[in-house]
Nucleic acid binder design. Structure first.
Length: 437
DNA sequence: AAACAGACCAACCGCAACTAT
DNA sequence: GATAGTTGCGGTTGGTCTGTT
């Protein structure tokens, strides 16, 4: 049920309005200075607390219309509103200011919140800056109730896409303090080749660090990894689909590690040696280099430039070849053989010399394969979610913005949740939590 | 129908950062 | 530089609603 903001909870608006009018002795008109002075000299005003009445709202709106936002402590002086400046500011920003978006969060917004929370922690105001029309209080309330429910249900706080990012960040930071694991030459080369091919393919598809590959890129890569035809599809992916849509089942989980393509930066596409990675600043400065159009359109890289087609085909062939090499090198079982056995989870990877069916080991294997091949990225930018039907206006944060890669995953869900035994099904669970919880 | 628990939401509080004097 | 005032932020609380028993 939606309560209208500002509506009194206990009594009717009419009653409250009348009460307020009596209480204040007027309807929001400004006082003459002498009246104001008289009041100040009189008994100290007792500021009101509790829910706002419609009369109070009207007075505040009127004040802002006349004087603009800010100088909140003057509101009480100028209007006689028996509220402290703090309360006025809060009421305005959370309920009265224009362009506020009311109602429940869309799935895209929910995913964006999860991503932002993974990046920023409990920085509600900064998160709100990425969600036009939403307030920090709204996001905070949403997150707190949701987190509580999920923790009680024993479910991971973050969706798998976000957990992966956290794990990658964690692993990268770990790798900075420990030597890279020894890989067999064949495995290392194959992993490097595949990663490079993926990077090149992503660049060819128009992704850059300022326009990072969306989360569903991994889905495209997953398809590419399982089907030769899908390789071409990956290079001409369909328009962006809702992040909350199900992942492709085959290779779903392991394919997520191919999100390493997120590291791809703007490098020239050319034949010959695969371009080296150049990782730019973290992507929490979303607003600094926004996608050219709306996110939904921006992620539809199907509209690749004509002169890119040749590169795409080259890359497709190259990617196909590299994937074959990797499959041989690390012996990936086919998804078809695995799906029924482990409940539709992901592929089981085997490293040279031993089968590993443990999911976290499986993750580690891929990290081991992929991370050492990275060109020491400074950061691990998380692809901003498809800013859902946003105007595209995102806030510019000042230079005090913290590098998200330096922010530890919040204790609420970060490290612990990434250790949880989530599989493909958890994607759906996460998306459907509104029913579960 | 009543009691209860949980969810949701608005608002308050304390603190820190910033700004003006 | 010190101080007071203002603003912004995050944590927390308390009231109401809703679904369940």
């Amino acid at each position: 049920m939606e309560r209208s903001p500002g509506a009194p909870l206990a009594s009717s608006p009419e009653e409250e309005e009348e009460k307020a009018a009596v209480e204040f002795g007027h309807h929001g008109e400004e006082e003459a200075p002498d009246q104001e002075q008289q009041r100040e000299e009189a008994a100290p005003v007792v500021l009101k607390k509790g829910p706002w009445t419609t009369a109070e709202d009207a007075m505040l709106v009127d004040h802002v219309r006349r004087h603009g936002e800010g100088n909140w402590n003057a509101v009480q002086r100028l209007t006689g509103l028996l509220r402290c400046g703090k309360s006025c500011r809060l009421r305005w920003t959370n309920h009265l200011r224009p362009n506020l978006k009311k109602g429940s969060f869309s799935p895209d917004e929910e995913l964006l919140i999860a991503q932002l929370h993974a990046q920023l922690g409990n920085k509600w105001a900064r998160m709100a800056a990425h969600l036009p029309g939403r307030t920090d209080n709204e996001i905070k309330n949403y997150w707190n109730t949701r987190t509580k429910r999920r923790q009680r249900a024993g479910l991971p706080v973050y969706p798998p896409e976000v957990q992966l990012h956290l794990a990658l960040t964690k692993r990268r930071r770990y790798a900075e303090f420990s030597p890279a694991p020894e890989l067999s030459p064949g495995t290392a080369a194959a992993a490097a080749n595949v990663q490079a091919a993926l990077n090149a393919a992503a660049v060819s598809a128009g992704y850059t660090s300022s326009r990072p590959a969306p989360l569903d890129l991994a889905r495209q890569l997953a398809a590419a990894a399982t089907s030769q035809a899908a390789v071409h599809q990956f290079l001409s992916p369909p328009p962006f689909s809702a992040p909350s849509s199900p992942w492709p089942k085959p290779f779903a989980r392991n394919a997520q590690y191919f999100q390493l393509a997120h590291f791809v930066a703007r490098v020239p596409v050319h034949a010959g040696p695969v371009p080296r990675l150049r990782v730019e600043l973290p992507s929490n400065q979303f607003g600094q280099a926004p996608p050219p159009a709306s996110a939904a359109a921006g992620f539809g890289v199907g509209a690749a430039l004509p002169d890119q087609h040749q590169h795409q085909h080259q890359n497709a062939a190259s990617l196909d070849k590299m994937l074959q090499e990797l499959h041989e090198a690390i012996k990936v079982e086919t998804p078809a053989a695995l799906a029924p056995a482990n409940g539709g989870g992901g592929a089981v990877l085997e490293r040279h010399g031993g089968a590993r069916d443990n999911k976290s080991d499986d993750m580690d294997t891929l990290f081991d394969l992929m991370i050492p091949t990275l060109n020491a990225p400074e950061t691990v930018p998380l692809a901003p979610a498809a800013a859902p039907n946003h105007s595209g206006s995102t806030s510019q944060h000042s230079s005090d913005d913290q590098d998200p890669s330096t922010i530890d995953p919040p204790a609420a869900g970060g490290a612990s949740s990434s250790d949880q035994d989530w599989g493909f099904d958890s994607v759906c669970q996460w998306s459907n939590m509104s029913r579960i919880c």
